[in-house]
Design a binder for these strands. Structure first.
Length: 216
DNA sequence: AAATATATCAACCGCGCTCTA
DNA sequence: TTAGAGCGCGGTTGATATATT
């Protein structure tokens, strides 16, 4: 026998909130405060469950919420806190006034995780990702279409000659995606991008700044 | 311009914890 | 002590927006 549902779901509205619903909820909470979430929808005249009201208020309607993109300082803080606290989003959110656990969790999953991976860091342990063993590299290469490798290698060389940072970065990301450490090692101008040293490369950081918002 | 893929984020779900009778 | 109610949390889903082909 499972746990009983938090409320009678029959006849309850679900999905995105309307402006009218939002204003009903805000009006009610500002005038009455919150004693019991289960009673809020009934008293506020909403066809929602208490849980849904709570979530809407906490994640969207609270007047103290900060809107807009995360700043670099906030991102750094999230990374630092995550390294200490793990996926305890509410604990992390407690250190970032105006940000919700849901918002931080979403931002982590969609952006910061990728950013860390590109920096060669494991988003779970926050440690540098281990080099693939030679065996694994060879294994990967076996499953790589040789034509694809050739095309990528050619494009990488062209990018290096062209001097375009954007082109270089595109090729670099593709190289990383293909897990083709061997290809990178085989290209003399790209040697500085062995996993050991690529994080220190001015080329890489220039590239990141060029990515700007689209990268982050 | 249309179709398809990918990214983003609001909202939901279910579990576990805490409180209370 | 225990069972049930309510709340909060973290994982997941799905709708929408945006980018790419």
């Amino acid at each position: 026998m499972g746990r009983q549902p938090c409320c009678e779901k029959v006849g309850l509205k679900r999905g995105p909130w309307t402006i009218e619903e939002d204003s009903k909820l805000v009006d009610f909470i500002l005038n009455n405060g919150i004693q019991c979430w289960r009673l809020v929808p009934k008293l506020a005249g909403l066809m929602r469950c208490g849980k849904s009201c709570r979530l809407r208020w906490i994640n969207y309607l609270r007047p103290d919420l900060k809107r807009g993109a995360f700043t670099e300082a906030e991102e750094d803080m999230i990374i630092e806190l995550h390294s200490r606290l793990g996926n305890r989003w509410s604990k992390i959110a407690a250190h970032l006034p105006g940000r919700t656990d849901n918002e931080i969790k979403n931002h982590w999953n969609t952006r910061i995780k990728k950013k860390l991976k590109l920096l060669g860091l494991d988003p779970i342990t926050h440690k540098p990702i281990e080099h693939e063993s030679d065996q694994e590299i060879h294994h990967n290469m076996e499953f790589q279409e040789p034509e694809d490798c050739q095309i990528l290698q050619q494009k990488t060389e062209e990018a290096l000659i062209s001097g375009s940072n954007q082109a270089k970065n595109e090729c670099f990301v593709k190289n990383m995606e293909m897990g083709s450490s061997l290809m990178i090692q085989n290209l003399e101008p790209m040697e500085s991008f062995s996993v050991d040293s690529w994080m220190d490369s001015p080329f890489l950081w220039d590239g990141f700044s060029n990515f700007g918002e689209s990268f982050l």
